[in-house]
Design a protein around this nucleic acid. Structure first.
Lengths: 150, 150
DNA sequence: GGTGTTCTGTTATAATATAACTCATCCAGG
DNA sequence: CCTGGATGAGTTATATTATAACAGAACACC
């Protein structure tokens, strides 16, 4: 069990200083999208996020959410989970990591573990003369809690 | 440059013997979907495949393609490329591999390299008590040919 | 010759994502 | 000031990807 409140505060304060440093704006919509993802601590679909924003009177249409997510992803504050077509707040913002995701198919919680570069993907690419730009490493299965519950 | 015809023939004959062994049917639609993917040697979207089928008078609606793809994926003859929401014929059918994909963002060719199990994903999962069921390892970038061309 | 199973056909719709254009805001340079 | 560029948000419409649900054909087995 981790201290969720302080983890959210830390992530938000990292986001703020990151944006200040880069000279980009953490606008209300962008900030709120990040907060929603941090509060949930799991992967949310774009339209789930949109529903929340609507409830709060912020941005009522899909492009608003997708733009905010684009921004947050470019800033390294949010990751896209390809397996789920969903999005999760980065759990290791600013640590310069290669993200590896363990996705529970039951509770949809996403465990992000920072990994060193130089895994199979990099070795495979080197052998093929392939220039990697982005990588995706995701596993789907059952998390420890859901295994215990079962 | 590889011998594409013989590679297609080999893959089809593997598919046939696999289906015979498992007692499942490689029906015309399923076979044709596999052939289309083998001929292209790159990732195709479900609707691109559907268009081809339609041209040939086979299965005119999305579920037909998605069902064929489900079958082929379950049989290990086709892989889903999550990054692209697309599908590619397996280049190493029957070799019992953990697929790793290098996806060229320019020509959309997919290089599939067979990797041993036991990479970062497995190590991360072990540490977290997470039971892996499926894994995704994909890299996007530029292939050797497109790099040379640029 | 029915009966169960497997596969296909079809209609409809859900879920995810983006194009294209408008308007508001802000702020730097004149 | 005020103006012109840049940035971000609002909005409409639509593209793309995927599935639910049910009807019918084919075949295999008893």
């Amino acid at each position: 069990m981790h201290d969720h409140d302080s983890c959210i505060r830390a992530a938000l304060s990292h986001a703020e200083s990151h944006c200040a440093r880069e000279g980009v704006q953490l606008t209300p919509v962008r900030r709120r999208v990040l907060e929603i993802l941090l509060e949930e601590h799991r992967a949310l679909g774009a339209y789930e996020i949109l529903d929340r924003l609507r409830d709060e009177g912020l941005g009522g249409q899909p492009p608003v959410v997708y733009r905010a997510l684009d921004f947050l992803i470019r800033a390294g504050l949010v990751h896209r989970i390809e397996t789920l077509n969903a999005f999760a707040a980065c759990a290791h913002a600013g640590e310069g990591h290669v993200p590896v995701f363990l996705i529970c198919r039951q509770c949809r919680h996403v465990i992000e573990t920072p990994a060193p570069a130089g895994g199979q993907l990099e070795r495979a690419a080197e052998g093929a003369g392939f220039a990697i730009e982005t990588t995706v490493r995701e596993a789907e299965g059952l998390c420890a809690d859901c295994r215990t519950a079962a």
